[in-house]
Design a protein around this nucleic acid. Structure first.
Length: 112
DNA sequence: ACTTTGACTATAA
DNA sequence: GTTATAGCCAAAG
């Protein structure tokens, strides 16, 4: 794919901006990109994230419920939870604890 | 050019 | 509280 003119590139860029120990949602990213309702595209972009040149911390991108829906798409299903736990995030039963506290919304955090 | 998909979200029941 | 359905947009087949 091309450099940064695709929808994916935006997603990758925002995901890379997610601080360690924080998580974000597909909807939050989509909303920051202006699409708002194209949260699915974010997820699909993540699917191609591994094809991107630069590494993308896709493990910090989860669904609105704080559930690790895409963990099964990683190299190994437990890779995602492993990375999150490394960053100090408590994950139990594929669900992020204190998700509301750890949520990093670009449209809010980058707004300041 | 058309159809299918897809790691979602919001609303309705 | 949960489960079911519809909407959504962009890319791959």
């Amino acid at each position: 794919m091309d450099n940064n003119d695709s929808f994916y590139a935006k997603v990758y860029d925002v995901v890379r901006l997610v601080p360690s120990g924080r998580v974000t949602t597909y909807g939050a990213i989509a909303r920051y990109l202006g699409s708002g309702r194209s949260a699915r595209l974010v997820g699909w972009a993540m699917n191609n994230a591994h094809t991107c040149d630069q590494p993308v911390p896709a493990h910090r991108v989860i669904n609105r419920n704080g559930l690790l829906t895409g963990k099964h798409h990683f190299e190994t299903p437990d890779r995602m939870q492993r990375l999150l736990e490394q960053e100090g995030i408590v994950v139990e039963d594929d669900q992020v604890q204190d998700f509301d506290r750890l949520l990093w919304d670009p449209s809010i955090e980058l707004e300041l």
